[in-house]
């Protein structure tokens, strides 16, 4: 009987100690979260480019006109970068759980320039290290954010010619395959 009680007590202590050692649930790693969001954004943008712009635009059936001033043109449609930005604006109307934006250190529209030091640092990093992402944490107000910056690349002549020839572009020598800006995804921690 004594032995049984002793064993029971030891088992209880052991269970108690094991319970104390359990790691706290931490949720999704912010890097995996932002990488996953970027994967969805990238896939949607690629599909819009391939399945709508290329298929129905001048290189395909030629029934739509992708153009920066699409609203002013019959059958005009958004350029892939504009469609991407429209998605970011629609998400911003829905939630503050995360934000994303297309920015550049050479923006055509000054509204798309980096606004925080972390954004600037990230955009400079991805421009200097083609193919690499940038991750950091920044405190804005009382909230700490995980900020990820992913490269936005000139993938067609349409990208380079539009930016190089645009009167408001601060850079006029973009080459195909060059980093033109970045997608900034910010998540509160």
């Amino acid at each position: 009987m004594k032995k049984t009680l002793m064993t029971l007590a030891m088992a209880t202590v052991a269970v108690g100690l094991t319970g104390c050692g359990e790691p706290e649930s931490k949720g999704v790693d912010p890097k995996i979260y932002t990488d996953s969001l970027f994967a969805v954004m990238k896939a949607d943008r690629t599909n819009y480019t391939k399945l709508v712009v290329k298929r129905l635009g001048p290189a395909g059936a030629n029934v739509i006109k992708p153009d920066e001033h699409w609203k002013d043109i019959d059958n005009g449609t958004l350029l892939p970068a504009q469609m991407f930005r429209a998605g970011a604006e629609a998400v911003a109307e829905m939630t503050d759980d995360f934000t994303y934006s297309l920015q550049s250190i050479w923006p055509i529209n000054s509204q798309n320039a980096p606004k925080t030091d972390m954004e600037k640092k990230g955009l400079e990093y991805i421009a200097a290290n083609p193919g690499e992402n940038f991750y950091g944490e920044e405190k804005l107000g009382d909230t700490t954010y995980f900020t990820a910056v992913y490269p936005d690349v000139a993938v067609s002549d349409a990208c380079t010619s539009c930016h190089n020839d645009h009167k408001d572009s601060p850079k006029s020598d973009f080459q195909l395959g060059e980093v033109m800006g970045g997608v900034v995804i910010r998540v509160p921690l």
Binding site: K42, T49, G131, N133, P151, V153, V155, G177, V179
Partner: peptide
Amino acid sequence: YKQNCKVCHAQGING
């Protein structure tokens, strides 16, 4: 690859 292709092929840019 790093000098010429990584910018797209490390990220899956444009598929």
